[in-house]
């Protein structure tokens, strides 16, 4: 049902925004998934590694615990080339841009940050063009 999906989307969105609000108001940090993971991986911020690892433990662990109850579906493509290309572009792109959907999208737009708004416009446009080309023009995804 489409309308149920919209309601669940809004409810889940409130939870995502609530998590970002908690991380900002208690820890004083911006909840950006790519920044939290990237700062660990490229060693740019080793000082906060326990906090980053704790966040990641919750982000991976809670869905793992809820999955048997909620039965989420990913519908991820089975084409490894598409998965690897998508992952590489996402990893490089979010670190160059200093943020992704959570950092620029949720945390940036909500404080009317020009960089967050610009990044969101560019990644949604690029995503739209990519889906149109790869799905409707070339039929690859």
């Amino acid at each position: 049902m489409m309308e149920t999906d919209w309601l669940l989307g809004f409810a889940g969105g409130l939870m995502i925004g609530g998590a970002a609000a908690l991380y900002l108001l208690v820890n004083g940090r911006i909840m950006g998934a790519s920044g939290i993971l990237g700062g660990l991986l490229d060693g740019s911020d080793r000082a906060h590694w326990p906090e980053r690892l704790s966040f990641l433990a919750g982000l991976i662990g809670v869905p793992l615990l809820l999955a048997p109850l909620w039965a989420p579906e990913t519908h991820l493509t089975g084409n490894p080339a598409v998965i690897v290309a998508g992952g590489l572009l996402t990893g490089i792109g979010t670190r160059l841009a200093n943020g992704c959907t959570s950092g620029h999208g949720v945390c940036g737009i909500s404080r009317l940050a020009p960089r967050g708004i610009a990044a969101t416009v560019f990644y949604i446009l690029a995503g739209g063009v990519t889906v149109v080309l790869f799905r409707h023009v070339w039929g690859l995804i």
Partner: peptide, 18 residues
């Protein structure tokens, strides 16, 4: 450039970092 690359990857696979 980063946002355009990210958007392309997001469109290809449908996953973002979170």
């Amino acid at each position: 450039l980063g946002s355009v690359m990210f958007g392309a990857g997001w469109g290809l696979a449908g996953l973002c970092p979170g």
